[in-house]
Amino acid sequence: MASLSSSNSAYLLLFVVIGSSILAASAGDLKKDLEITWGDGRAKMLNNGELLTLSLDKASGSGFESRNTFMYGQIDMQLKLVAGNSAGTVTAYYLSSKGSDWDEIDFEFLGNLSGDPYILHTNVFSQGKGNREQQFHLWFDPTADFHTYSILWNPKNIIFSVDGTPIRKFKNLESNGIPYLKDKPMRIHSSLWNGDDWATRGGLVKTDWSKAPFTASYRNFKANACVIASSGSSSCASKSQPSNSWFNQELDSNGEKRMKSVQKKFMIYNYCTDAKRFPKGFPKECNMS
């Protein structure tokens, strides 16, 4: 993750207890790390596990999830999105826990009419509460080639990045009464599905099924993360000196500058500025991040 710095003060004790990240997922064989979960054959592993594709037609979409469950980590995946007229389609790539008070960290890519930009939709849920949407126009064609979409999740913050450029952060402000994502292990999920009731121009543009099947492609998955076993034990239980900087990473001044530049140029929606949605005042974290 570019433009990040490390600090050992506030979380030194916690870091020593959790220790270093054990897992470094293989970028070469997705079969080892990901499992197709639905789609009735519409999701496929190709090239000996180097490539995974999800497809959507009028009957169904498709999806996969990680074989492992994580509690903090740096997650990278390269995606190439649905090309051409993808209006109505949603390609979702996210971390999520289970239960009614789930935690979740979302990348969602909202399809478009040919020639219009994709919308990258992001959200953060803590204890089942989301409503923290930020949306961006991507500054490249995400259908022409693969690009890397990254989530850094540690005790200090969550940072969303695209090709190493930070676009959003969600700080741990638990000391101010704002719940943080700190105690619910999460799996990686992805799906390609029909969201034409809202995805493109608020649902005004519907999916053109004559263009189906729609296909998104994935490769080079990497997770430097703490893996949680079914017993509840963590692969990061080592008490040796930690060696993985992601656990304490935050944006440095250059990273903050780059993020603000992206937000100024490409952000098209920010819940923290939507006065119509929050007439009684913005969520508390909007004035603290």
Rank of each mutant, 00 (worst) to 15 (best):
Y11H: 07
Y180C: 08
R168M: 05
K156Y: 12
E133F: 13
D196K: 14
G164D: 01
S6E: 03
S210V: 08
C236G: 07
Q249I: 02
L251N: 05
W153N: 08
E250S: 13
F64L: 11
F140L: 03
L110W: 05
D141C: 10
S55L: 00
L56W: 06
Y218E: 06
S96V: 06
W193E: 00
N287Y: 11
S238W: 02
L110T: 02
D57E: 00
V82L: 01
M288Q: 14
I119T: 10
D40P: 00
H137C: 04
F266I: 02
S9P: 00
V16C: 01
N154S: 12
F140H: 13
K206H: 12
M259R: 15
L51R: 10
A24V: 12
G115N: 02
Y11Q: 03
N254K: 15
D163P: 01
D33V: 11
H189D: 02
T89P: 00
F282T: 06
A27S: 11
P185V: 15
N123R: 10
I105A: 11
D141A: 14
M77K: 11
K171T: 14
K276Q: 12
T215I: 07
A237N: 12
I119Q: 02
N131K: 15
Q249N: 07
I228F: 10
I36N: 11
K211S: 06
E65S: 15
V16D: 00
W38I: 04
P179K: 09
K264A: 15
G49T: 03
I151C: 12
V205C: 04
V82G: 04
G88I: 10
V227E: 13
A87M: 05
S240T: 12
C286S: 10
M71K: 09
A43Q: 07
I18F: 11
Y72T: 09
M186K: 05
E285D: 13
L110F: 12
G61Y: 11
S62N: 10
G281Q: 03
G203N: 08
L110H: 04
D29V: 01
P279V: 12
K171W: 10
Y94L: 07
D29I: 01
G255A: 09
D29E: 01
V227S: 10
L192P: 01
K44L: 04
L54M: 06
G88C: 09
D252W: 12
D183I: 09
M45L: 13
D101M: 08
V17K: 13
C272R: 05
K31S: 08
W38K: 14
G281I: 04
F221G: 11
N112V: 07
K184F: 13
D196S: 13
G164S: 10
F109L: 07
N131L: 09
H189E: 05
F221R: 05
L13W: 08
D274I: 07
L110V: 01
S6D: 03
L4A: 09
Q78Y: 12
I158K: 09
S126I: 09
E65Q: 15
H121K: 09
D57H: 08
N131S: 14
V162N: 08
G255V: 07
T53I: 08
